[in-house]
């Protein structure tokens, strides 16, 4: 795998707040990478520094194979979280305008615009003013304008979070197609979206990069035994559960809890199993289900983002 983009010691400080704290990662050519993290983790700030919208406080962003002094923006196609357009332009006019600003000839920009309007499924609206477009249509037009100059790296900031379930499905499918053609980096706070599309994930939390690697490796390396526990909904059992998870024995960590159920990650399965069973009998809790399995990515994600 050859490296397309490498980021080193990237930092952004806003007044007092450290929004991005010394992060470094590499994006391989042709990979689909998800930048994952809860809201406010620094994902958008990182993306805005990559696209040149924000000057980093320190650190370097380097494309491999780019000539000295070449404009990084030539290689990047960017779709912001809420793409904005000139309402008085038609969709097609905006695409041609974007294409020409990326250095395409008039002819090329025109043919590429038609092709992309078709591809993102708004060909029939191409001659209408963008002012009358719906949110989903704007998202599609945003994707088209990001692709207009065949960028080496496609950067998408929360591409589906503002869409309804159907729009979300369709845009996800489009990204799924695009990742076969170019390198894609997209940010999301939904693990499921990342798992569905990506080869690699970068997890950010409080401005720092908590975890990075390929999906497959992370799954493998972080396979931990998990005890999934469900209890009956009587008062006694629920009170016990609420109290117990606050004083879990060493080596056991609760990742997610809902009313009447909890998932526990164990360092050592045997010790944990014994401890849980002992506790259950001692407290006379009405157990409805106890399952032993392995941690999923969701457990890992929750563990990483909720760790103290």
């Amino acid at each position: 795998m050859s490296v397309l983009l490498s980021v080193e010691q990237l930092t952004k400080r806003f007044d007092e707040e450290l929004a991005v704290d010394n992060i470094g990662f590499e994006i391989g050519e042709g990979r689909c990478v998800a930048l994952l993290g809860p809201n406010g983790a620094g994902k958008t700030t990182t993306i805005r520094m990559l696209t040149g919208l924000l000057q980093p406080t320190s650190g370097t962003i380097q494309f491999s194979g780019m000539k000295q002094g070449q404009d990084r923006r030539e290689w990047i196609g960017y779709l912001p979280q809420t793409p904005a357009f000139y309402g008085w332009m038609t969709g097609r006019e905006f695409l041609v305008y974007a294409g020409r600003l990326c250095g395409l000839s008039a002819k090329e920009a025109a043919s590429r615009s038609n092709e992309l309007l078709e591809r993102v499924g708004i060909a029939s609206a191409g001659k209408r003013k963008i002012g009358g477009y719906s949110g989903g249509m704007k998202q599609r037009l945003g994707l088209a304008q990001a692709l207009i100059h065949r960028p080496r790296l496609l950067v998408l900031d929360e591409p589906v979070s503002a869409l309804d379930p159907i729009g979300r499905r369709e845009v996800m499918a489009m990204i799924g197609e695009l990742k076969n053609e170019t390198t894609v980096l997209f940010s999301t706070h939904v693990l499921h979206d990342a798992e569905e599309l990506c080869d690699d994930i970068l997890i950010m939390r409080r401005g720092q990069l908590s975890l990075a690697g390929s999906l497959a490796t992370l799954r493998e390396e972080n396979r931990e035994p998990v005890l999934s526990l469900e209890i009956e909904e009587d008062d006694h059992s629920r009170q016990w559960l609420a109290g117990w998870i606050n004083k879990l024995p060493n080596g056991i960590l609760a990742t997610s809890e809902t009313r009447g159920s909890v998932r526990l990650i164990a360092q050592d399965l045997e010790t944990a199993r014994r401890a849980v069973l002992k506790e259950l009998t001692k407290s006379e809790v009405s157990l409805s289900k106890l399952e032993i399995g392995h941690s999923t990515l969701e457990d890992l994600f929750l563990k990483v983002v909720t760790a103290p």
């Binding site: 923006r73 960017y78 600003l101």
Partner: peptide
């Protein structure tokens, strides 16, 4: 932001 991320 839409225009200035392009090589302009």
């Amino acid at each position: 932001a839409m225009i200035l991320v392009k090589p302009v």
